[in-house]
Design a protein around this nucleic acid. Sequence first.
DNA 1: CAGTGAGCGAGCTTCCGCTTGACTT
Length: 762
Amino acid sequence: MKNLLIVESPGKVKTIQKYLGNDYTVKASIGHIRDLGQKGMGVDIQHGFKPEYEVPADKKKIVAELKKLAAEADMVWLASDEDREGEAISWHLFDTLGLTEDKSKRIVFHEITKDAILNAIKTPRTIDMNLVDAQQARRVLDRLVGFELSPILWRKIQPKLSAGRVQSVALRLIVDREREIMAFKKEPFYRIEATFNPEGTKSSVKVKAVLDNKFDTLQQAEKFLQDSIGARFTIKDIQQKDGVRVPAAPFTTSTLQQEASRKLHLTVSTTMRLAQALYERGLITYMRTDSTNLSSLARSTAKAFICDNFGPEYSRPRQYTTHSKGAQEAHEAIRPTYIQNTSIEGTAQEKKLYDLIWKRTVASQMSDAKILKTDIAVESDRRPELFRIQASQILFDGFLKLYLEGTDDETLDEGSDVILPGLNLGQAMNCKEMRGECKFTQPPFRYSEASLVKKLEELGIGRPSTYSPTITTLTTGRGYVVKGDKPGEKETVVNLKLTGDTITRSTKTEVIGSEKGKLLPQEIGMMVTDYLMKNFDGIINYDFTANVEKDFDLVAAGNRAWNAVIADFYTPFHKKVEDVLSDRTFSRPERELGKDPETGLPVIAKFGQWGPFVQIGEGENRRFAHLAAGQLIENVTLEDALKLFELPRTVGTLDGHDIVATKGKFGPYIKYNGKNFSLPKGCNPLTVTEQECQDIIKSSSDPAKDQLARFESSDITVINGRYGPYIKQNGVNYKIPRGTKAESLTEEKCLEIIKSAGKAKK
DNA sequence: CAGTGAGCGAGCTTCCGCTTGACTT
């Protein structure tokens, strides 16, 4: 064998092999092949922070294979990604495989095209040891921070907790936001909206306008409406302005996660799983990237596609530059591999995600949209305030033909086109109706998974490959955060309406500030953040990563030794760690919520061995209840706390046995005759009726309830499982191939599936 | 489930970033 070429991702191997032909064997390292040892610190702190590298167990096989192939090859081409981590991977390969400088070359390419790869082969270089050192500094710093801080938490708060440069700041963002919301005092205000019929138009023509002033009180709003009875309204000013809207840049990992969340309501991890599947099928480029760059081939095919399908006036080739902090741009933006593929085969979700990527990519190469913005002021002869009419009209749709980026601001409706009738200066406007509506000032929004990723990217914290795993660490990993809903607060408001000469009042109950699917900090997350803020504010600072990145840049430029950077950080940091560990005091949050109205006993929220709980009374007969997900000691109300004691609740009986409704680890369930039955989604254990419980118990006792089909002779059952239908035979489960409808399965068809699946498994 | 730091102590937990399966009903 002449040449061995090693890349990171197995997904690239086939394509590159095709471009290079038989003189090359293309293999993948499958990411990093070496890491700091798992046992202990893995860094020799005493001797210049020397890293103690090991090949992890799951990488032994690939390393052995690469070693063998490298020994047989005349030349080894190290083609890992062109970024800090990629450079380190090349160096670890060089070191581990026992390569020499005359028998190995370092090459890089940013896109998987024939030109890019052949060009890379023509322009090899040597491994950039400064860049490798910057990576070693990053790796060692993260290990030192994580493995010195985490044990402090085990000792001071709870075992198995963790802290780190990325996760602790991500957690702090969520905790800080929650505290901002707690501190926020919402204020009511009145917004005045009028519906006008312009003089000289049909009476059905309506134009909506909003007063440029808000009122603090009902009285002020009512006064305005009274003053408006019989008032004359005329157009005082008309301003028209041409504007443009520009398409958003092609997707990076972060923006893909945000848009898939906004438009397709996918979680960050689902988005990545689907994108991985598309990538593996060769349908899209690599999905973990911070670059908005498109290859020249992609740009030219997009141009041709747009000209052919929409016309040349819709085409505007653009190259986007990446602005995000710390971007390393080793890959292209996420785009369809072939722009010509306007749709794909696959699951409904895969199709939707592909469609999103396709539209975003093509729209990014289309013309600006031309907009005519109109701003009209309407004055009253009784009051100085002005009504404003704002409209925007699309003169040329450009990229909007395909795609409009979503927004995180839940109060904003998408820029709909408002068509105004012809209006002139001085024209009279007849007021058909005027409303005074009570609104409330809004606290900042809680983070969703995707908006947290957006914020992390803005701060330069974390990388495309870690956004999703970081969220998993905070939620299912450590229980610092739960994803859930906040019900909002009920408010009774008085609204006003003026029609003709009469003002009517209406009273309405509204729910203010409810949020769904947001990241809610748990008590343990608050405690960890408070503790780290108090003792390690430098590390949990939002700028910490940005600052150390500057040092890493100095290392990468060859201007500082990597271990000198680490020493500067470690000396004061470790002293603080020692100080904190010698302090044996513990503090736990505790708060009295009030008195139990039934017994008069105090109700106290505090943190125990098993997490936050509330207790009623003291001594022998006190009662305990866990706080629910998202409830915090510092702001749980007495009312909410008392509700926690309403479970378990005896609902009724069936055949002489009690039915008890309660909540457990897996959500609400009912206990009956020694057995447990989950309550269906949306069924509240506090309000579920005896009849409903009896039905649940009876239907759950039916062994065939999840069976879709049963073929006795071959012991085959088709079961409707949690992840969709599947086939079971002799205790072994088999997937149903994509595109096959479970209802259409016959015994023969099932046997066929089992037979082919059996082969695949071997 | 247990129960809301009396003591002792062995042995465990943990980081970030680069990758993909293997696994789950």
